[in-house]
Design a protein around this nucleic acid. Structure first.
Length: 541
DNA sequence: AAAAAAT
């Protein structure tokens, strides 16, 4: 009995590994005699899904390396850490722990088997071509094009029409893989660079899954870390749903206070965590029928402080068949750990490498000596290459106000955004920046994530970012959708200890980094960032 | 450590 259990688990591991493209070609020995029963059972189950091809069978076919060698190989190969991580995901996953039982002795048709193998091989090559890394058991084939949405998944006309009208021609890598995963009702955590189309990757399957508007209460929830981002996601969502009468609602202050969702039918609800939690507490919204939950910028949402709120929302979504998904450009290990506790049978989709800056951004470092030097440097930078609209990030609200005051005298249209402003002022700041009325927007990290300011060509980190992920997200406001972007990061004496972290990111995303930088000692981000001198040059009274 | 997230 015990032996049988062990066999099963082993089969399961192999399967997980075989799903990763790197494993398909590195080869794993699979003892068909021992696990034959398992395979047969899997194959039978999978034949119900026309598009899901069992990977177990594949394993036997590609078999040049000895069984023990495969473990060693795993340690050596570059892509491996991901695979090993991915494997761990399923070690904890309950359904993956439940391997098929012995006993089914049915024989598989050799022809079918061959075809399945070919499909798997095609998928692996295709993923490799688009730099998509997956782990998880039985990952659905990636999309070749958007037309497959209708040929494979019977997507309705309105959605295809909207895709064309909005200018989506070719799916991006994250869309190619995450959309089929979600359409197969699989939970998913996805990591892809900034500006690579993550929003569409979860909105599109969401609309397809919901099919039609209904009066069954809230059926889909999207959570975002800031109001600006939720309102942006709301707009994208409405654009994609054009032609269908879905009731899509943005959780505004008003709605969270007085809105009674049992009275307004609502299919899709987009909110920040606290507002939604407030509505739940006041029993204004019932999430027990939610079929689809998206945590956008999930690593931010999983940060301490926000996590507690998320947790209560996740619990309120009590529908057992709910499909949850996590999206972000950065996916630290602690988020994956928490995600594992949360999700079952999830597929992990990574485009490029985890926690990487977008490769379309030209990144520069500028030494400014002291705080005062920064003000000179930013003016100089404007004089040298005036490339508006420019987004300037500072460390705190106070500093945003100060810098705003300084630059306001310079005859440039400058504005600031931070959380001390009223909702209206924040909205106006974003709208004016988008409309080109504001040339330079000074911001705290409130708009560092997810915001899509299409025209932004240049991001200036006036204050050094607080973390690698803050850097990645900030500079990711430029260079979106494959366009070129520029990022300039100022650093003063005080920032030098943390410079190496940024240098590494720059080098990893293909930017030239002076060699002395790479020789700096490695140092972890400090909790206590240096206290910065005031920006203001005006004499103090 | 700051920012954001409710009123």
């Amino acid at each position: 009995m015990g032996a049988k259990k062990k066999q099963g688990r082993q089969a399961c591991c192999l399967q997980t590994m075989a799903n990763d493209s790197s494993f398909l070609f590195s080869g794993i020995r699979f003892d068909r005699k021992r696990f034959g029963g398992d395979i047969a059972k899997f194959e039978k189950k999978e034949s119900d899904h026309a598009l899901n091809v069992s990977s177990l069978i594949e394993v036997e076919e590609v078999e040049p390396v000895g069984g023990k060698a495969s473990a060693k190989k795993r340690k050596r190969k570059g892509t491996v850490s991901e695979t090993v991580d991915g494997f761990n995901v399923f070690k904890k996953s309950k359904s993956a722990e439940r391997p098929p039982k012995d006993g089914d002795k049915s024989v598989i048709e050799p022809v079918l088997k061959k075809e399945q193998n070919r499909q798997l091989e095609r998928d692996a090559l295709f993923r490799k071509k688009h730099n998509i890394h997956v782990s998880g058991y039985n990952v659905p084939s990636p999309l070749q094009n958007f037309n497959e949405l209708s040929s494979r998944y019977k997507c309705e006309k309105y959605l295809l029409r909207n895709l064309v009208e909005l200018g989506f021609r070719e799916p991006t890598p994250i869309q190619r893989q995450a959309i089929p995963v979600l359409l197969h009702d699989r939970e998913c955590f996805a990591c892809a660079p900034t500006g690579s189309g993550k929003t569409l990757a979860f909105v599109c399957p969401m609309l397809m899954k919901l099919k039609d508007p209904s009066k069954n209460g809230v059926r889909a929830v999207v959570l975002c870390p800031t109001r600006e981002l939720s309102s942006q996601t709301y707009r994208e969502c409405k654009k994609m749903a054009k032609g269908k009468k879905f009731r899509i609602k943005l959780m505004t202050k008003e709605l969270s206070r007085t809105g009674d969702f049992s009275k307004f039918p609502c299919d899709i609800l987009i909110s920040t965590p606290l507002r939604l939690r407030l509505a739940i507490k006041r029993k204004k919204v019932d999430l027990s029928r939610v079929e689809y939950l998206v945590l956008d910028e999930s690593d931010k949402l999983f940060e301490l402080g926000l996590f507690k709120q998320i947790d209560s929302i996740i619990k309120a979504c009590s529908n057992p068949s709910i499909i949850r998904s996590l999206f972000s450009a950065t996916l630290p290990d602690f988020v994956e750990d928490r995600a594992r506790e949360l999700m079952h049978d999830a597929v992990r989709v990574i485009v490029g490498r985890k926690n990487m800056a977008s490769e379309t951004i030209k990144q520069k470092l500028v030494f400014t000596g002291s705080e005062e030097g920064k003000l000179i440097a930013i003016r100089q930078s404007f004089a040298e290459s005036w490339n508006p609209p420019v987004l300037v990030f500072v460390q705190s609200k106070e500093r945003a106000k100060e810098l705003h005051g300084e630059l306001a005298y310079d005859n440039i249209r400058v504005d600031a955004i931070h959380s001390d402003l009223s909702q209206k002022e924040r909205e106006d700041a974003v709208d004016n920046f988008r409309a080109g009325k504001t040339w330079v927007l000074i911001a705290t990290d409130v708009v560092a994530r997810g915001m899509d300011f299409k025209g932004v060509k240049c991001v200036i980190n006036y204050d050094f970012p607080d973390s690698a992920s803050a850097y990645i997200h900030r500079i990711g406001r430029s260079g979106r959708a494959g366009r070129a972007g520029e990022a300039i990061t100022f650093y003063s004496e005080d920032d030098i200890p943390f410079l190496r972290n940024i240098a590494n990111l720059m080098a990893a995303s293909g930017c030239e980094v002076p060699s002395w930088l790479m020789e700096l000692p490695k140092k972890k981000w400090k909790k206590h960032r240096p206290k910065r001198d005031s920006i203001s040059t005006k004499p103090k009274e």
